[in-house]
Design a protein around this nucleic acid. Structure first.
Length: 951
DNA sequence: GAGTTTGAAACT
DNA sequence: CAGTTTCAAACTC
């Protein structure tokens, strides 16, 4: 659907004369007039027949018909499917126009206009001419059912069209159309409200009632949806001409009087003007593959017969073929056979076909020029028949398109036999003369002169074709949303943009801030942000395994917290876990814990790389629970090869050694497997730095699960590491464990002091003493976990998170350094390679994105060591304020406007959406850069000012 | 490797 | 919530 929408938008954009669309709802107001005259717009439901759903998929499909019909939108004509090659009309929407009597309401004329989305047999039943239904089989009379609610539409001409709102229940209309398939049913909006969208520009020369009906979906078999418009009164002036042109055959008497339709605008914004035209007949230059029938020698050179018996004239792009059909019954027996209805004209334009029962309804445009423009029509087109040259003006992308409708009077119903065509057809051709500008007409089918104009489909596909005033934003990746118009975009987005933009502008940091930090200014380097933005996608995709080692990243494991929306998914075990990679082994342990309800706990035993650590992730119910890893100062500790402490076998180790033989064997197997896997998973680390960074696979201490409500899924953020970097580190080579070995002596490894415990891991190969962090002491361990959680529910949550995949990583709590200047690994922020933020309570912080060490030194010189503390606090405050100072609403708005302007610009240039998105993002980046630069400059000047007085 | 420094966790 | 203590990692020598 989205694609469809895009198309839709683009189409509308193309219109030089954007006319507001009218929906049927607009017309629904009951009018007094309903009484006698009514017009029915009946749509044969073709969609279901051909599997309407599929239609949507088909780009070639007429956007008008398919998608909009779902919306119950009635499209009267579209020029896009000229080529509709098929003899077979896949899909049709028929519009019946019933003209009420002339000024003195004479006989009502019913004209069926079919819009054929697809070549699909047109159900004969749909055909109606005049008050009488042409469709032979269907119960003609029923079609004309008048609906109670009639809406009067006054045309430009001052003529009135009545639109009758069909009752939802009217679906019975199907009965109207004889065969179920052919049945006409009323348009019924899903809500039960009948809704048809007509452009306001639709003008009907004559007054009459328009009744829209959509065949009930139930009649899935119904090949096409017919829309009948009844009750159009022929214009007084027009009548004369029309009358002449009118084909006698079709009308059951009533048709005789011509109706003038001046402008019809389709819901998609295309405007079809039907003006009375001179007598000239335009025939299709060329026929498509379909059997062509030249009407009784009349205008149309070539005529295609739809299986239904409808004759479709292939025309070069831009041509609309109108033909009248003789009432002959479907020889072929195609469903459309009914289409044989006499006097029906099939207007095909741009792949869309309109079946008009009464030619006269279409009035020739008086504008000679229009006709003249029809040059492209083949010679045969000359309007032989005086009866009628109808011109339809279709303002399109390029401007007004003219369609000439040639009535072939000659071809009477009887004429049908003439051609091979099963049905005799009187062909009227409508030539659409499009301005040089790309018209919507493009023939979808190759049959017609494809060369001529870009196919409609193409045009749709390529929004670029038409210059659009609208901003069409596609939600690719959710960043950009399709918007109907600039106004909408501005109005809707501007506000949101401000808020939203403020975030990006103010730095992703804010968003990244775990909790209350949103407003806080971010100190992170923009480069980081950018890098992450770029990398986020990939990183996120790779998720858990990714290694976070940005070039800058040292060892810390970074975690991205999934936002609420993803909770569920998040709750789902990490895919890695789900799949239970080689290094994951399921371990079942009897839960001795008093609290745990479940007698047994299932752990996924994960043997990590170095086998230095083993993680047990609770996996009760077979689903490993995602766990969070607490980021601790020491946790960065993926120790480099030259680990300070050689892996000593701790008591823990011994315990593991004494694990059941079975497990042990598993363990060994896993180790081997783990190695292999680790290679894959190994995070790229700084090449220079021996330290390996591993995104920590979030594991939750076994006990945590019980206590902690559904935890957000934390995924390891993998900063985009260059492949090279990734390759550089071979975990196996050094056999370096990326995990640190704790060395706890007093905490029994049951406090957060212990890295292992804090990470939810069991100690293994640690040098700890009196370790209780293992399965042997599960009770104690759980108790400890509960204790920790009691103190701090977030105790096991990662300290460093990126709220969104693209956001900057942030320390949730911030550091509290006093003497290290946040430039040593004592500082968790520094350790994680993220700048301190205002959340931090550090003193003398020098871990700021905007202040590289060098700069700091210089500043130190200026201010003196003592001033540092103050400076630090000051900086923090200033940083905080900076966001407020520099990211004012005006600035944000300006930024947003710049982005919007880009959109508009590119929109006009028909730039691909992807490119547009990129451009917009670039614009945002530029804006941010400027803002930052400005802020920096200001900041520096302020610093200088301060220093001067002191000196 | 011992000792010191440091800051988070734990505790009051 | 602030201050103090405990603890273990980080760091220095």
């Amino acid at each position: 659907m989205s694609s469809y929408r895009v198309d839709y938008l683009t189409d509308s954009l193309d219109d030089t004369e954007p006319l507001p669309e009218l929906s049927f709802e607009d017309f629904l107001e009951p009018t007094s007039d309903k009484s006698s005259q009514h017009m029915e717009i009946e749509a044969l439901d073709s969609e279901e027949d051909d599997g309407g759903g599929e239609d949507l998929d088909d780009p070639a499909n007429d956007s008008l018909n398919t998608p909009q019909f779902k919306k119950n939108v009635v499209h009267i004509l579209e020029d896009k499917r000229l080529n509709s090659p098929g003899l077979t009309v896949l899909k049709s929407h028929a519009i019946k126009v019933v003209t009420a009597g002339g000024t003195p309401p004479a006989k009502a004329q019913v004209t069926d206009v079919k819009i054929l989305n697809k070549l699909k047999p047109i159900p004969s039943s749909t055909l109606k001419i005049g008050s009488t239904t042409i469709a032979t089989k269907s119960t003609p009379g029923s079609i004309t059912k008048t609906l109670s609610n009639l809406t009067q539409i006054r045309t430009k001409d001052g003529q009135v069209i009545f639109v009758q709102k069909s009752v939802p229940g009217t679906q019975s209309s199907t009965a109207l159309t004889g065969s179920p398939s052919s049945g006409i049913r009323r348009l019924v909006a899903p809500s039960g409200i009948q809704k048809a969208v007509l452009s306001k520009g639709v003008t009907m020369a004559s007054t009459g009632l328009v009744k829209a009906a959509v065949p009930p979906k139930a009649s899935t078999s119904v090949p096409g949806t017919a829309i009948t418009i009844k009750g159009i009164q022929p214009l007084a002036g027009g009548t004369a001409k029309a009358s002449t042109s009118s084909t006698p055959t079709t009308t059951s008497g009533s048709l005789a009087q011509p109706t003038k339709i001046q402008v019809v605008r389709t819901a998609d914004g295309k405007i079809i003007k039907i003006n009375q035209a001179g007598p000239s007949l335009l025939m299709n230059a060329k026929q498509g593959t379909g059997t062509t029938v030249t009407p009784g020698g009349s205008s149309a050179t070539s005529v295609k017969l739809s299986p239904s018996g409808n004759v479709v004239l292939n025309k070069p792009i831009g041509q609309v073929v109108v033909r009248t059909e003789t009432p002959v019954k479907p020889a072929t027996g195609s469903v459309a056979s009914a289409s044989a209805t006499p006097g029906k004209m099939l207007v095909q334009s741009g792949g869309k076909q309109i079946l008009v029962s009464n030619k006269n309804i279409i009035k020739l445009s008086p504008n000679a020029s229009a006709t003249s423009s029809t040059t492209h029509t083949t010679g045969g087109q000359t309007p032989s028949t005086s009866s009628g040259l109808h011109a339809i003006q279709m303002p399109g992308k390029g401007g007004v398109q003219y369609v000439r409708v040639l009535n072939n009077n000659k071809s009477a119903a009887g004429t049908s036999a003439t051609t091979s065509m099963p049905k005799t057809v009187q062909t009227q051709k409508i030539t659409v003369v499009r301005p040089p500008v790309a018209t919507g007409v493009p023939a979808t089918s190759s049959t017609t002169s494809a060369a001529a104009a870009p196919s409609a489909a193409a045009s749709k596909a390529n929004p670029p074709m038409g210059s659009t005033n609208k901003i069409v934003m596609r939600s690719m990746g959710g960043s950009i949303v399709p918007l109907p118009s600039v106004q909408t975009l501005v109005s809707k987005r501007a506000l949101g943009a401000i808020t939203n933009a403020s975030k990006p502008a103010s730095a992703a940091s804010s968003s990244a801030a775990p909790s209350g930090s949103q407003e806080l200014p971010r100190k992170h380097r923009l480069t980081d942000l950018n890098m992450q933005l770029k990398q986020s996608a990939s990183a996120s995709s790779e998720a858990s395994d990714s290694s976070d080692a940005g070039p800058e990243a040292k060892k810390p494991r970074y975690v991205i917290t999934m936002q609420q929306g993803s909770q569920k998914a998040a709750s789902q075990p990490v895919q890695k876990l789900i799949n239970r990679p080689a290094n994951v082994q399921r371990v079942v342990s009897s839960s001795t814990s008093p609290n745990s309800n479940s007698p047994k706990k299932i752990y996924n035993y994960v043997q990590t790389t170095g086998s230095n650590g083993a993680k047990y992730m609770i996996c009760n119910s077979g689903v490993p629970q995602s766990s969070t890893s607490a980021m601790r100062r020491g946790y960065t500790g993926y120790v480099e090869n030259k680990t300070r402490r050689p892996p000593s076998i701790s008591s823990q180790q011994h315990r593991f050694k004494h694990m059941g033989a079975q497990q042990q064997s598993k363990h060994q197997q896993l180790q081997a497997q783990a190695k292999q896997k680790i290679r894959q998973q190994q995070l790229p680390t700084e090449q220079s730095s021996p330290i390996k960074v591993e995104p920590k696979l979030p594991t939750l201490p076994p006990g945590v699960k019980a206590n902690v409500p559904a935890k957000p899924l934390f995924e390891v953020l993998k900063p985009a590491a260059t492949p090279a970097a990734a390759g550089a580190v071979d975990p196996l080579s050094g056999m370096t464990s990326r995990r640190k070995h704790c060395n706890c002596s007093k905490s029994q490894c049951l406090k957060l002091y212990c890295d292992c415990f804090a990470n939810g891991e069991f100690c293994q190969d640690c040098t700890c003493k009196d370790c209780f962090n293992n399965l042997d002491y599960e009770v104690e361990r759980e108790r400890a976990i509960r204790s920790c959680l009691d103190r701090n529910p977030s105790a096991f949550k990662p300290k460093i998170t990126a709220p969104n995949s693209g956001d900057m990583r942030l320390h949730n709590k911030g550091c509290n350094c006093k003497r290290s200047g946040c430039l040593k690994n004592y500082c968790e922020c520094y350790e994680a390679k993220i700048p301190c933020t205002s959340i931090c309570k550090c003193v003398g912080c020098r871990n700021m994105e905007d202040r590289p060490d060098v700069d700091m030194d210089s500043l130190d010189g200026l201010m003196g060591a003592e001033g540092q503390k103050k400076d630090k606090a000051k900086n923090k405050q200033s940083n905080e304020n900076c966001a407020n100072i520099y990211l004012t609403d005006d600035v944000i708005q300006a930024t947003v406007m710049c982005m919007l302007s880009r959109i508009v610009m590119h929109e006009k240039q028909n730039v691909a959406v992807e490119d547009m998105e990129r451009e917009v993002l670039e614009e945002m980046g530029e804006s941010l850069t400027q803002i930052i630069a400005f802020a920096k400059e200001k900041h520096e000047t302020s610093l200088i000012d301060e220093s001067k007085p002191s000196s």
